[in-house]
Design a protein around this nucleic acid. Structure first.
Lengths: 335, 335
DNA sequence: CTGTTAGCGCTTTCAG
DNA sequence: CTGAAAGCGCTAACAG
């Protein structure tokens, strides 16, 4: 059960070439650049591949050609569902172009950003996608120096490392605040994670409101349980809260559960708005108003930019704002 | 905005060695095998690394050393939350040992399994982790031939490709059936995804019940919306259903929402049990009884097996059953 | 402790 | 359309 089989030495392109009766380089071209080889030769080489069980070695190819056919993706934590549609779309769009996505976890505190970047770059990815901005100045400079295409996503700023696909978190915050105020609610509150983007949304919210409001801050990644606790804190600060903006749908669900547990009616006594439009948001009781972001579109667009750049095509619009919209549901809807 | 910086040629180990005034191989050892080099030399080399901005090239190293320090992970679809804790734990445990996880999506239909395996093996991973079993015979043989450590997870079988960390899905099904029957419920039903493991659970359930029950099958990946529809189908088959086993918590949530929408009381009129113990299960109203599996433990254990094997250590127990438990909550609990 | 030599498997020149 | 030569950047193996 434990002893491995003999592990016969893997076939190389050399073996394929010999089996096909051609030179090494012809075999290489038959596989990677068939336009330069006659059809008959291609067929013989393909036959030889089957016979020998040849699997190309992309490490060797990449070493010489300087193209690893690999794209690195940096996410805060893989297990946070928020970025999954982006990662999914990235994976698929890149895969269709022959690229493999390799994922790295930067953590929410940026502490490992620099170290991670080094271990990632050591694998010589042809490009890099980051969820969020590259914050560390050292990392920014290193990326400029390395010179591979970089796409920052899920945010916008006026000084991209290279390219950018996202939306404005500040605008999200002010949009939600404007939406609340438009409903005539005055006693507002915020339950927010402590990560960078959530903080931007909080700032946008506060700026639009124009005054301080009760805020409960929880450590990222936010969760349902933290949401329950957050509402407790908020109500302790102001028992008359009419509407809460939450920095994630998970947090919002927690706030909702806690509100119901306290006998509050949603939205009559307290209205709730989340962020992210998670799978479950539309199906909660009551259904959750939230900010919808097309995460898959972000991933797709980022992949397209990368593929174009790797093919040497010029990028007309390196900074793409994909926007967002408020999905109004029962948790804020007074009929 | 679009023009890339000059992209000065990246420093190689050669440059580092020269800057440190030592030979190439000494620089290599100072970085990768410091035990063989004097402290003074190590310091000089490290200084040179900083000066030159050297980033090692793992492609080159891997080509020579036959160790890419990379582990491939195959999941059906990245965006399904079920395997996230496993992927997360894998990533972290492997990372701590210097390995990078590269993820591939096999899809739920096994169609791309063979092709994917080839593109993955082309990157010469040092090991492979699969969520589920390797089904295709061609793939199994190829893996045996390649000879790298393989861990199949989230399932058990009597013929592992190599190693295995999981639990018995058949037993899960029969455990839930036994639990239902123990409550005295006779009108049972199943809402299930159509993937392999869900089918095993269904079979275990049916075997324990000993007769046919209404079944609604939905295409994987299952979702809340599909769950709503599934309950409709089940009630059409038998309006007196007392308890439904669902192959995922998402599906169960959908069944729950639909039941409540139809004015059914949970669990008095209809009891519901899910699978997976997702984040939200404990917080639904009513809270959801479900089968708890420690996905993170699976990932951790798989990583440990791989690391041990890659270090040449013998594996005493190549097949690990981590079990499961039924987490009883309100959706099945009649006080 | 340090250095020399020889490749890993492939693709990029440059020639036919 | 096909081939020969050269070498990507690194480490294993063997010397000192």
């Amino acid at each position: 059960m434990n002893a491995l089989p003999p592990r016969t030495k893997a076939a190389t392109l050399h073996d394929v070439a010999r089996a096909a009766g051609v030179s090494l380089i012809t075999a290489s071209r038959a596989l990677g650049n068939p336009g330069l080889v006659s059809d008959a030769t291609i067929a013989r080489v393909q036959q030889a591949v089957l016979e020998t069980g040849y699997i190309p070695n992309l490490l060797a190819g990449g070493l010489k050609s300087k193209r690893s056919m690999t794209v690195a993706g940096l996410v805060p934590i893989i297990s946070v569902p928020q970025f999954l549609p982006t990662v999914q779309a990235l994976t698929e769009t890149l895969d269709a172009a022959g690229y493999q996505l390799i994922l790295g976890q930067s953590g929410y505190d940026h502490s490992r950003e620099d170290r991670l970047l080094n271990t990632i770059l050591a694998r010589r990815p042809d490009a890099l996608v980051v969820t969020g901005l590259v914050h560390s100045q050292a990392a920014r400079e290193q990326l400029q120096r390395v010179g591979i295409p970089v796409v920052e996503t899920w945010d916008l700023s006026d000084r991209p490392v290279d390219m950018m696909v996202g939306f404005s978190h500040v605008k999200v915050g002010s949009a939600v605040a404007g939406y609340f105020l438009g409903k005539g609610w005055q006693h507002l509150a915020i339950a927010t994670g402590d990560d960078h983007r959530a903080s931007l949304r909080r700032d946008g919210f506060l700026a639009a409101v124009g005054r301080q409001v009760p805020i409960a801050t929880v450590p990222a990644p936010s969760s349902l349980a933290l949401g329950r606790r957050a509402l407790g804190e908020l109500l302790a600060q102001d028992p008359k809260i009419q509407a809460v903006y939450c920095s994630s749908d998970g947090l919002a669900q927690g706030v909702m559960v806690e509100a119901l547990a306290r006998g509050l009616r949603i939205p009559q006594d307290i209205a709730i708005c989340g962020f992210g439009d998670a799978d479950f948001a539309a199906h909660l009781q009551p259904s959750l108003t939230t900010v919808h972001v097309d995460g898959a579109a972000i991933g797709r667009r980022a992949a397209e930019l990368i593929i174009a750049r790797c093919n040497g095509q010029p990028i007309e619009q390196p900074v793409v704002d994909l926007g967002f919209r408020i999905a109004e549901r029962q948790s804020t809807f007074l009929s």
